[in-house]
Nucleic acid binder design. Structure first.
Lengths: 213, 213
DNA sequence: CCACGGCCAGGACGATCGTCCTGTTGAGTA
DNA sequence: TACTCAACAGGACGATCGTCCTGGCCGTGG
């Protein structure tokens, strides 16, 4: 360390095989951040944790994301919105009836929870809880994602029910999102899929009684 | 501080008017911790924040709560459990019918949100999200509180419905808790009581259709 | 009244926080 | 090939984290 510089001793353990690939580097960073923010929380995740799990240097991180808030916003805008889109919005739009679409999504998530051991909860809900009140920009971003989520469900409910039904599609969509989100919170706490199963069963019965196709 | 000791100069700005009152000191600490943990989150709250808001010294805090985890456990056991008890369990047990009890609680909370400007969300849900996976003891404690909460609702539903109804009280209680918890998450994100109102309306209709008294 | 132990003030401690700085290397451009 | 700047490595920086230590004060049992 003092005078014995061994920068290229043999060839072993080079510092890094550096190759400039900004977008890949950026994606590694956001992916690691999304996983950690969802799994452990925004505040519980340190910059050092991200550097370690993503395997990047401080310089690279600072180059792509000057502050932690920048990472948080990018996670919301480029990962959270996509997760909701793939898990909920796309299946809703693709399905023929609202009832089956909702129950299928819930069933798929129950299966997924049963396969893997741990339950980390609803990603968006997790992010919402410790990011929403942290910064107004966070809150607005999350609010928009929730809105699109509810709208996709409400839209399908609207097109699936008869013209004379006096059910409010928006309010019912809010109930579905709330029930799922809250059930995932309890699933996270109990580390089982039981709360989600119970809510899915109840929603099934409710939709039958409310004549939602 | 060196040689010029001015411990009783006139009488102004004494260090502290110390009076040993351990239980009051402890309560101030837990109250401040509960408020901050619920409002800003467990990880987002530092020990220094607690010392400042509660107005206690480091020595006092270390005496009553050696570690941050100790504060967290005490907040769960001595405040969170009581909050759920007062807000939900007691009203459920006191009411004659499950339907009115649930709708009254939801209505009261909506009014409360409208009175004050900000929405911090469901206290237990907030605590659950960034404490449950932090420590197994946290998780078990929160799980037990959720269980008591659901049981109180299920118990009232059971005693409010006819003997031939094939509704599962436990599953329906899970739906109520999940819907409320999730609605409060959205209310926190939108900073309005609208999501909670929507869910309350839907639950009202659902309970009518399910013949829950 | 005295001594003793619980109670509490204030600050030190190493670790780690988020950010920024310096220097080097990669890959286009001319 | 020579130049240039974005992309990256590695570490320094002050601030703050959670914890613990020293020492003085309070109230109670003897």
């Amino acid at each position: 360390m003092v005078a014995l510089e061994e920068k290229s001793k043999k060839d072993g353990a080079r510092t890094q095989e550096r190759r400039n690939d900004p977008s890949a580097m950026r994606n590694r960073l956001i992916d690691a951040a999304y996983e950690s923010f969802v799994g452990h929380g925004y505040h519980a995740t340190s910059i050092h944790d991200l550097k370690r799990t993503a395997g990047v240097s401080g310089g690279a991180l600072a180059h792509h994301f000057p502050t932690k808030k920048d990472i948080g916003l990018s996670v919301l805008r480029e990962r959270a919105v996509k997760a909701v889109e793939e898990t909920w919005i796309a299946p809703m739009q693709a399905a023929s009836g609202a009832r089956d679409a909702i129950l299928n999504v819930l069933g798929a998530i129950v299966s997924e929870l049963d396969v893997r051991g741990a339950v980390t909860g609803c990603p968006l809900s997790n992010l919402a809880h410790d990011m929403a009140l942290q910064d107004p920009e966070f809150r607005e971003e999350i609010e928009e994602i929730f809105r699109q989520w509810r709208d996709a469900i409400a839209q399908k409910v609207r097109s699936s029910q008869g013209p004379v039904d006096k059910l409010d599609p928006d309010a019912f969509a809010a109930l579905v999102v709330a029930a799922y989100s809250g059930a995932m919170t309890m699933a996270k706490v109990t580390q089982t899929s039981a709360p989600l199963k119970a809510c899915a069963d109840q929603l099934k019965r409710v939709m039958s009684d409310l004549s939602i196709a």
